[in-house]
Simulated assay, not measured.
Amino acid sequence: MQIRPTRPRRSVLYVPAANEKALAKVPSLACDCVVVDLEDAVAPAQKVVARERMRDFVAARGEGGPEIVVRVNALSSEWGNADLLAAREARPDAILLPKVETARDVLEANDVLDETEARASLWLWAMIETPRAMLNIGAIAALGRDRGARLACLVAGTNDLVKETGVLATPDRRYLVPWLMQIVLAARAGGLDALDGVRNDFSDLDAFGAECGEGRDMGFDGKTLIHPAQIGPANTAFSPSAEAVAEALAIRAAFALPENAASGVISLDGKMVERLHLDQAERLLAKADLGKDQTR
């Protein structure tokens, strides 16, 4: 299993696989990642057609461009297994599993990918969107430390969490915040990325930008989006500040000095700086496309 890449995932846009016009616009979009959606955004009558359009889209991708992820239907559904097999053969960057509730759900998909010569860098992402998933999130996230597993990212499914729990969806998300913070905490324990849930109102971009800022401050790496208009505010909110980049570069340069090569702790601008801060700096710089390499 290869080491997971560190890459920007500030803006992660869902695009219905059945919508040819939307798929055709992807190369012109400034989002970091596109989720080609076979699940919620596709009506039952269009599932098979959507699957074929997903194949064509992934096959036609060129060099560069956004990270490509395919969201399959739940493996317990009538479409899930065929979706997973089709996505495995299409070879996107990752496959997003919806309705994940236990670690076993991820491992079963992992086993399907391991049955063939699916490339080692075909990752799995997990939607956390049910009460049972929240209760089992520690075990799910722990797979991120398992070199035999492909889990790379947790995605908050806020709409389904609201539906399944009955909490009130207030503008400030006050009743969701404890669960969102739990997703971030679990992701960090597992060495995974964490993505905030969607905001359904895409007309009020000021409110959306504020929600992105709150997600950033909670520790999320980026936000899932439902409309291209949301890409700009998400990229702005989740981009490292100029000050943070400058500090990270200074930490990298300080530890690169010959006299600090064997040091675990150094003094920089009157502050104690440890190698854990260097790790954090390198991660930030990689997400700002300033990394020495793109692995961690």
Rank of each mutant, 00 (worst) to 15 (best):
L113H: 09
D114V: 00
T116G: 14
T116E: 11
E117H: 10
A118T: 14
A118D: 12
R119E: 07
R119T: 11
A120Y: 03
S121A: 14
S121Q: 12
S121N: 15
L122Y: 08
L122R: 10
W123P: 11
W123L: 14
L124Q: 09
L124F: 07
L124S: 07
L124H: 07
W125E: 14
M127F: 04
E129L: 03
E129Y: 01
T130W: 09
P131C: 08
P131T: 11
P131A: 09
P131N: 12
P131Q: 09
R132I: 02
R132E: 12
R132H: 08
M134N: 00
M134E: 01
M134W: 01
M134D: 02
L135T: 10
N136R: 08
I137G: 01
G138W: 00
A139E: 14
A139D: 14
A139W: 00
I140H: 07
I140W: 09
I140S: 06
I140C: 06
A141I: 02
A141D: 05
A141P: 11
A141Y: 02
A142R: 09
A142P: 03
G144N: 05
G144L: 04
G144K: 01
R145M: 02
R145P: 00
R145V: 00
R145L: 12
D146G: 04
R147M: 12
R147S: 14
R147G: 09
A149R: 05
A149H: 11
A149E: 14
R150T: 08
R150H: 10
R150Y: 11
L151I: 08
C153F: 00
C153P: 00
C153S: 03
L154I: 09
A156D: 09
G157H: 06
G157C: 09
G157N: 06
T158M: 10
T158P: 10
N159M: 13
N159L: 13
N159V: 12
D160A: 03
D160C: 03
L161F: 13
L161N: 04
V162D: 01
V162A: 13
K163C: 11
K163Q: 15
T165F: 08
T165H: 10
V167G: 08
L168N: 12
L168D: 14
A169E: 12
A169W: 04
A169D: 13
T170A: 14
T170I: 01
P171L: 08
D172R: 14
R173G: 08
R174P: 06
Y175N: 13
Y175H: 15
L176K: 07
L176T: 07
L176Y: 05
V177L: 15
V177R: 15
P178A: 07
P178T: 09
W179R: 11
W179A: 14
W179I: 04
W179Y: 11
L180R: 15
L180A: 14
M181F: 04
Q182V: 05
Q182F: 06
V184K: 05
L185F: 10
L185D: 06
L185Y: 07
L185T: 10
L185P: 00
A186D: 02
A186E: 02
A186P: 02
A187W: 00
A187F: 02
A187C: 06
A187P: 08
R188W: 06
R188G: 05
A189I: 03
G190K: 03
G191D: 05
G191T: 01
L192M: 08
L192Q: 04
L192N: 03
L192A: 06
D193Y: 06
D193I: 00
D193C: 03
A194K: 05
A194S: 15
L195D: 01
L195H: 05
L195M: 09
L195F: 00
D196R: 11
